[in-house]
Each structure stands twice: as C-alpha cells, then as structure tokens.
Design a binder for these strands. Structure first.
Lengths: 144, 144
DNA sequence: GCGTAATCAGATATTATTGTCTTAATTATA
DNA sequence: TATAATTAAGACAATAATATCTGATTACGC
C-alpha cells in the first residue's frame, strides 16, 4: 500500500487545521479534537505532545487546559507540520529505492522524479494554515 | 516517516528493471537478483511470485530456472508494477487523511493535491521499462 | 484547600510490514 | 536416472507503526 504521509502525520495536519479554525486565543482539548476528528484519543495525545515540543503548538495543563497554535496561522505551513512529524527524507529519497541514487549517480527516473517532488515541496511550503482555514468554512468539517 | 511506495514495491521496481537489462529470452534467478540488488532473498522471492501471478513476469522452475519479463519491456510501465504490488489507492486518497474528502466535499487542499497526484500518475503511466533500461547503461548498477 | 479535568510520560498491547526458515515440486544437466 | 538448482508455498520471526492503559503532575473553579 502506497503512503504519502504517515497516519500520525495525517492526524497532526487535521488537528492543527482544526485549531486554526477556533477563535484566536481559545484552548482546545485532546478530548474535543478526538471526537471532532474521529481519531484515537491517546494516540492523538502523543502527537499533540510532539507538536508542542517542536514549538508549533502551546499547551496548558490542568482543568480547562488544552492546545492552541503557538504561532499565527499564516506562519505555520504544511511543511512545518510534515517536517515535525514525518521528517523530510521524502525530499531526497530515491523513488525506486536505490540507496546510492543521487544527482551524480542518478537512477533512470531520478530527474523526472526530482521535478515532481519539487512541486510537492513547493506546495507544502507555500500552503499556510490561515489560507487553509479560510477555505474550510464549516466548523463541523470532520467528514472532510 | 513519509513513504511513497512500500519497500516491497521498491524491490519489485528494481527487479523488473534489472530483468529488462538482461538479454531478451534469458532467465534470471532470485539468487542472482538478490546479490545484484542487495535485497533479502526470500522476501524478494515472494515479490517475484506476486509479479508472476499478476502476469508481469514469467517463471521457470527447476535447475537453471528463473524469471523473465512476460511482456516486451516497452509494454510494462511503472504504473503496472506499482498497481500490482501497492495498488492504486494513492490516486484517490486524501492527503490530509480525511476519510470523506472528495471532489464534492473537498478538503482545503483537495484540488491542488489532485493536480500533483495527476502529475505523478502521468509519469508512472508514461514511463515504460524499455525507456528506463536505455537510461541505465551499466550492468553493475546496484548502487543506483 | 479540594476535587476535577486536563497535559505529560512511560509502559504495554495490537496490528501491519518486513524478513526468515523449511519443505515440496519441478526441471536442466551430468 | 540421480543430482543439484531452482521456483512455489506456507509457517514462523522480527521489527515498526499504531493504539491503549496507567499513573503522575498541573491548574482551574468551587
């Protein structure tokens, strides 16, 4: 089965987008996220911790605690989130899996693939969460 | 960790390409492939079986047996191999992981992602093994 | 202050993927 | 015909990814 991003990463993307849809300054709990997004509670908890440690989110402990974006939504890109969870190996890895494939020693599709990969990279870097939030009108967008 | 194709699929792509580099009509054993490509023997064996069952390869049992392409290299595309091993879910799956994302109910990056995905699809469908073999001159290309 | 509800942290469990082992069946070749 | 080398098949093992559980700490609100 082909994968683009890990499930962790998908959950992270969904969660960050959800936070961006909440009024600025409000905190959202993992419990809230888990019911809205339909993703496993404790697993999501771990992911939120990672995103917090990486500086993309801020958290508040205790009753009525929760998570919020640590930066203005326009300063968080898809790439930031992917980088924090999955890392950036996909920007270099050979699509055929040859371990020593590189620009100097290219596989048969190295250059073509590099182009496609660059398009993906550009999209991830350009797309910020504010823009995405604007395109996501409804608050009950779980089904998306 | 982000992935494009599974490891199985990478091995399959490498193996089919290697077969295309051999003189037409010759058989190549799994043992040969395993040493040339540096991939695990029995695991590769399973993959070769799959590709044979899917009709991309033909096999011959017994001493001096092995595998060869079942079709002219120009009639085997990257897409055929990916389809046989990983399936084609990646052509529809939402990049953010929203289960009900679709053209009618798009996520915030649905349309952009559809474009990028289409580029990948086109590349996989267009790129045939004959063309790739031509671009891979050396027979000792394991390191690619 | 106390109780409640939340994050944080680490251990454990489950599932999927990757990799290995063993045996049987097949076939060229000596 | 006997042997050796190979594919085929299925069971098993190891590893990685996903998911769950438990307890500790923190902080709000009564």
């Amino acid at each position: 089965m082909s994968i683009i991003f890990s499930r962790q990463c998908e959950y992270a993307l969904q969660a960050v987008l959800y936070l961006a849809l909440q009024p600025r300054g409000t905190l959202t709990s993992s419990k809230d996220l888990t019911t809205r997004l339909g993703v496993p509670y404790h697993f999501l908890g771990k992911i939120m911790q990672s995103l917090t440690r990486k500086g993309l989110l801020r958290s508040q402990k205790g009753s009525s605690g929760g998570f919020a974006l640590a930066l203005p939504p326009k300063d968080i890109t898809l790439f930031h989130i992917v980088e924090a969870i999955d890392g950036v190996d996909f920007t270099k890895k050979c699509v055929l899996g040859f371990p020593e494939c590189s620009g100097k020693n290219p596989c048969a599709v190295h250059h073509q693939w590099a182009g496609l990969r660059e398009n993906i990279y550009e999209m991830l870097v350009r797309k910020n969460i504010a823009e995405m939030a604007k395109e996501t009108k409804k608050p009950e967008f779980r089904a998306r």
